[in-house]
Amino acid sequence: MKTLLLKKGEVSRLICMKEVIGAVEEAYKAFNSDQVEQPDYIGIHLPSPRGEIDFKLGYYKANEVISMKASSGGFIYNPTAHGVPSGMGTILLFDARSGAVICVMDGSLITGLRTGASGAVSVKALARKNAKKIASVGTGNQARMQIRAINEVMKIEGIHAWSRTLDTLSKFKTDIEREFGIPVIVASSKKEAVEQADILITTTRGKGELVEAHWVKPGTHIVAIGTDQRGKQELDPELFRNAKIIVDSITQCTEKGETWHPLNSNIITKDDIHAEIGEILLGRKAGRESDEEITIFDSTGMAIQDNTTATKIYQNAIDNNVGTFFQFLE
C-alpha cells in the first residue's frame, strides 16, 4: 500500500471553507452517534525557551480512518535558530482496517480552518435568524478565520472589533474590509464592541474575564473559542447563569473549557449544560427557542474535526491527482 504525501501548499489548494464547514458538521453528528473513538489528548511541555507538542487521536467508524495530529507551539526562537515556524502541525491518516498509513499531510492549516468552521456551524444552529452584527474580541488569525467561516452561512453587515494591540486591530480592519468588503468599526473598548453584538466571537488567549455579563444584550449568540486549557478565560462566569449553554464535548469543556469557570464557581452544575452541539444538529435537543435567549457555544476542539477535515482533503487529493505517493515497505 502506498502513502500519499501532501505539503502545506497542496493542502491549502485542496479544500475550501464551505467544505470544512460540512466536515465539521459531520464530525459533530458522528461524535453524538456512537461513531467516534477519541481518547484524551496528550501533551509534552519542553523546557523553556522551547514550547509544547500536543497529540490528538481520533477514529471515525463510518470512514474507517484513524487520524493523529501533532501540533507544536511556543518555540519562539525557531524562525531564527532553526529556520522553521514557531508552531507547526502534522497529520497522519491510517486505514483502520489494516493499520497502514495512507497519508502524511501538513497540519498547520487544518486546526485554524476547522476551528473557524466550528463557529459557523454554531451560528447556523444557534444564532438569531435576523443576526447582522458581529463583535470580535480578539483580532488575530483565528478571528479572521471565524469571519471567513461565518461569512459562508450569513450576511454580515458590520463587525465591531476590539484588541489590546492597536496595530493588530488596524491590520484586522484593513484585511477584512479588503477581503470581504464588510465594514469594520474599531471599538474604543471591549464594552463598546460587545454591546453592539448579535454574535460575539472571543478568540484571545485571555487569562481572566474579558467580557462582563451585563455588557451582553438579550438574544446574543456567543462563540467562545479562546479557552481550551486550564488557566485561560474570556467570559464572566455570571454569563452562564441565565444562558443556554452548548458545548462541543461535555468532558472537555467541563475540564478545560470556558464552562469550567462557572462550574468551579458553583454558578452552574453539569445539569445546566443544555447540549453538545451534535445533539442539536441531529435534532435530539432544541437549539435557540426565542429571540431573547443568550446562547453560548463553548468550543475546545476535537480530534474528530481533524479526522473528517483531513479525510476530505485526502479524498480531494486522490480525485485531483495531487501530492506524491511513496512506499514505506519495499
Rank of each mutant, 00 (worst) to 15 (best):
D228I: 05
T300A: 07
P49H: 08
T311P: 02
Q146R: 10
L113A: 08
G219N: 10
Q35G: 08
T220Q: 07
I110Q: 04
E19Y: 05
T311K: 10
S265A: 14
Q315C: 00
G112E: 11
Y28C: 12
I250L: 09
E292K: 12
I277A: 11
G226S: 15
K132L: 07
D34P: 02
K207S: 14
T3P: 09
E179L: 10
T324F: 03
D248C: 05
I150A: 01
F94Q: 12
R230K: 15
A125V: 07
T80R: 13
I304N: 06
F55L: 09
E195D: 12
Q315I: 05
G58N: 01
E157R: 10
Y77N: 15
E152S: 12
A120Q: 05
E212V: 03
T324W: 06
L126V: 00
A27D: 02
P79S: 08
G323E: 03
V11A: 01
H214N: 12
K29F: 08
S12M: 08
A149P: 06
V186R: 14
L239T: 04
P39L: 04
L4V: 14
G278Q: 06
T311L: 11
G22F: 13
L263F: 02
I159R: 01
T269S: 15
K29S: 11
G89W: 13
R178T: 12
M302T: 01
T90D: 00
E292V: 02
G231V: 07
S71P: 05
T251C: 01
G51S: 00
D272P: 06
D271N: 10
A317N: 05
A27C: 04
E157I: 01
V216K: 07
F325E: 13
R164H: 14
R128D: 04
M88T: 15
A117W: 06
V184R: 02
D167Y: 07
Y314L: 10
H45N: 07
G22Q: 13
V186G: 03
S86G: 14
R50D: 03
S48P: 02
K207T: 15
M145V: 00
K69H: 07
I304V: 15
G9V: 01
S170Y: 03
